[in-house]
């Protein structure tokens, strides 16, 4: 397939995954705040930290607003200044989709376009103010609808595979980011007994990942940082766990590379390395060396893998073309 189109497919789903992750984080933060005593911890700043925008936020909005409910939400959802705000991500997703309109299905396009038109409309803004939880739920549903429609209406070949590759890499990294909010909100996770605040945070994190019920099917009633982190990082069957996402990304990368392909070695090698790390470690190893460090490393490695995918598949270089450009410039 055309390299530029593959790139847009890849990014389309990465952007949509970001929209969904933002909606998940913000939506769940409310229920968390209702469950824990307010004073001891920072309520909103961790969301800026895991989105990677704390510094710009301080610059543009001000450090005195770091825990301001309205300002932080506004910045993460709507701000045009924030490159990773849900609104900006959605606009970029739509622009990517528009650029490859001939590749995606009519249903996928109208689903996304309707979502975009709704976010632009006064109704969404009114819902955001009146019932934030419903608003975030609606955003999430729209993202899930889009994923489902793509799955059910596109040909399952290269464009689809690049979409899923982008989706799973981004989702794995987002789960790691969400898990890391605990570190930024209430501090490091050790092996000793945890406070009610810790536990409230873990429940919120499970909810952010739609993992509450799946988790209790696995944990046999034990709710600790160790069991939650173990589940979200390592459970191979949970669709948002880091390991699961990397495995799925690997499946799609294999489909893309094909059997006899000469390209793709670098991205595939990096992904295999990370996947091997995840599958050989236990949660005790991870907590021993530091959960926060492990999560940071996952996010960084995924970034490197994404760059390698770009180099392996999207550059579309053709031998001799530099010479043709030279000729063109010389006239």
């Amino acid at each position: 397939m055309i390299a530029r189109v593959a790139e847009s497919c890849f990014w389309l789903h990465r952007y949509m995954e970001r929209v969904e992750a933002t909606a998940r984080l913000l939506g769940v933060n409310f229920s968390f705040l209702l469950d824990v005593p307010g004073d001891g911890i920072e309520r909103w700043r961790p969301l800026l930290v895991v989105a990677g925008v704390e510094e710009e936020y301080i610059e543009r909005v001000g450090s005195e607003y770091l825990n301001d409910e309205e300002c932080v939400q506004e910045y993460l959802v709507w701000s045009e200044q924030n490159p990773v705000s849900a609104w900006n991500s959605l606009c970029r997703a739509r622009e990517s989709a528009r650029t490859i309109r001939e590749t995606i299905s009519l249903e996928a396009w109208t689903t996304l376009n309707r979502f975009w038109l709704w976010m632009k409309s006064p109704e969404s803004r009114a819902l955001y103010s009146a019932e934030p939880s419903t608003f975030y739920e609606r955003m999430r549903e729209n993202c899930q609808l889009f994923n489902g429609v793509c799955n059910d209406t596109l040909l399952h070949e290269d464009p689809f595979e690049f979409m899923r590759l982008g989706m799973f890499l981004e989702r794995g990294a987002q789960t790691a980011r969400i898990l890391d909010t605990k570190y930024h909100a209430v501090g490091p996770t050790g092996e000793e007994a945890e406070t009610p605040v810790d536990l409230g945070e873990w429940i919120a994190i499970l909810r952010s990942c739609s993992a509450y019920e799946p988790f209790f099917k696995r944990s046999e009633g034990s709710l600790t940082g160790r069991t939650v982190a173990g589940f979200l990082l390592l459970d191979p069957a949970f669709p948002r766990s880091v390991t699961h996402c990397l495995m799925r990304a690997w499946n799609f990368l294999q489909l893309i590379a094909g059997e006899n392909s000469e390209t793709g070695h670098r991205s595939a090698g990096l992904l295999v390395d990370l996947l091997t790390q995840m599958r050989t470690k236990t949660i005790d190893d991870i907590i021993h060396t530091g959960l926060h460090a492990e999560l940071t490393s996952v996010v960084d490695q995924v970034t490197v893998i994404c760059r390698a995918v770009e180099e392996d598949y999207f550059s579309g270089r053709i031998p001799g073309e530099e010479m043709m450009r030279e000729l063109a410039i010389q006239g």
Binding site: A3, R4, E102, D158, T263, Y313, I318, G320, E321, M324
Partner: peptide
């Protein structure tokens, strides 16, 4: 397929499209 000018290149008097497989 829908292509943009930068997706195409000419080599040896033939037009090529840049794909993920070359």
């Amino acid at each position: 397929e829908l292509v943009q000018p930068q997706d195409l290149a000419v080599w040896g008097g033939r037009v090529y499209v840049r794909t993920t497989r070359g």
